[in-house]
Amino acid sequence: MRLSQPTADLFIPDNASAPPGSALAPDAALARVTHLCIAAHQDDIEIMAHSGISDCLDNPGKWFGGVVATDGGGSPRTGAYSHFTDEQMKLVRRDEQRRAAQLGRYAIQLQLAHPSFLVKSPATSVGVRDDLTAILSGCSPEVVYLHNPADKHDTHIAVLHRSLEALRALPPEKRPRRILGCEVWRDLDWLVDTDKIPLDSGRHPQLAAELLQAFDSQITGGKRYDHAALGRRLAHATFHTSHATDKFAGITWAMDLTPLVADPTLSLADFTLAHVDRLRSEIATRLAKFQ
């Protein structure tokens, strides 16, 4: 497999402890992936797709694969990392993502190392689309986890666009059965219940913490994603429904993006704003009910 950026990183956790001569080839490692997450940054995967990681740990024959589109430069940093250059941070974050892939026993972890500004422009993101198309063509995932279209991080939305472009370019028989948009930089608790997909993220709680804590440069650098992500999952599970006991120990909310790939003519903006319109209608109906 050839990726467009010379600094792209391909890591197969199985090979880290494999006896000499028994290393798994990248194509074979990718081909076994059944659950694939395409994310913008290092640590996004572990925030948004813990349910998929757990599914693969709990079911023999299922394999999780991770893709990070950007290079890790430009992240906020304080404390021990305050003096690090962007180039140093890129290496640190690459290694942290590798560590998470080992902990989660991923089939493969790909870090495409594209600068964020290139990903954001359709004119300069050809390499991103080509990389994603090659990755998606090399596996047949049952489910793909993406950023959701209501996320408030510009790079997340750009990577979502590039991911949808690559998925839409696949032949129909190669398209995943399920494509989910997951929460990172905006919760999806606001969706009406019929639009919400609860992802069971309460399994393997110790591993969940370890996966998030693998990104020390972010946590000790000033962002306690480990506490925040775990707390959000618990809050979602508790506040999911007022008249029933909790079904899950943790929930990550997702929306179904499969229609956007099944019908490539469907506008991402129209699709997303229809969810907002349904929320508005539900609020108006409830307010009017007791007037």
Rank of each mutant, 00 (worst) to 15 (best):
residue 277 D to T: 08
residue 247 K to L: 15
residue 64 F to Y: 09
residue 275 H to Q: 14
residue 7 T to A: 08
residue 268 L to C: 12
residue 149 P to F: 05
residue 285 T to W: 04
residue 165 E to Q: 12
residue 235 A to F: 14
residue 246 D to C: 15
residue 49 A to Y: 09
residue 250 G to K: 10
residue 6 P to S: 01
residue 95 D to M: 10
residue 246 D to Y: 10
residue 108 I to N: 06
residue 83 H to Q: 15
residue 58 D to V: 02
residue 190 W to N: 11
residue 23 A to C: 03
residue 44 D to K: 13
residue 140 S to Q: 15
residue 111 Q to T: 09
residue 22 S to K: 11
residue 117 F to N: 05
residue 211 L to R: 01
residue 232 R to T: 08
residue 260 L to C: 13
residue 69 A to N: 08
residue 256 D to E: 12
residue 276 V to P: 06
residue 21 G to C: 04
residue 219 I to Q: 00
residue 287 L to P: 00
residue 115 P to E: 02
residue 60 P to H: 08
residue 255 M to F: 12
residue 220 T to S: 12
residue 195 D to N: 11
residue 66 G to H: 12
residue 170 L to K: 07
residue 286 R to C: 02
residue 268 L to Q: 13
residue 92 V to E: 07
residue 75 S to T: 15
residue 136 L to N: 13
residue 245 T to I: 11
residue 208 A to L: 02
residue 204 H to L: 00
residue 223 K to E: 13
residue 269 A to R: 15
residue 269 A to Y: 14
residue 264 P to K: 13
residue 180 L to Q: 01
residue 12 I to L: 02
residue 16 A to M: 00
residue 261 V to A: 01
residue 109 Q to I: 11
residue 167 L to E: 05
residue 19 P to L: 03
residue 229 A to N: 07
residue 50 H to S: 01
residue 41 H to Y: 01
residue 20 P to S: 04
residue 71 D to N: 15
residue 21 G to F: 03
residue 253 W to Q: 06
residue 134 A to I: 04
residue 101 A to P: 10
residue 16 A to E: 00
residue 240 H to L: 14
residue 84 F to N: 11
residue 182 C to P: 01
residue 135 I to R: 09
residue 225 Y to S: 14
residue 164 L to V: 03
residue 149 P to Y: 08
residue 5 Q to H: 02
residue 140 S to D: 07
residue 226 D to Y: 14
residue 259 P to D: 10
residue 83 H to V: 08
residue 247 K to C: 14
residue 255 M to D: 09
residue 279 L to P: 03
residue 59 N to Q: 07
residue 94 R to N: 11
residue 274 A to R: 12
residue 134 A to D: 10
residue 24 L to C: 07
residue 55 D to M: 00
residue 262 A to H: 13
residue 174 K to D: 03
residue 265 T to F: 11
residue 20 P to D: 00
residue 137 S to G: 11
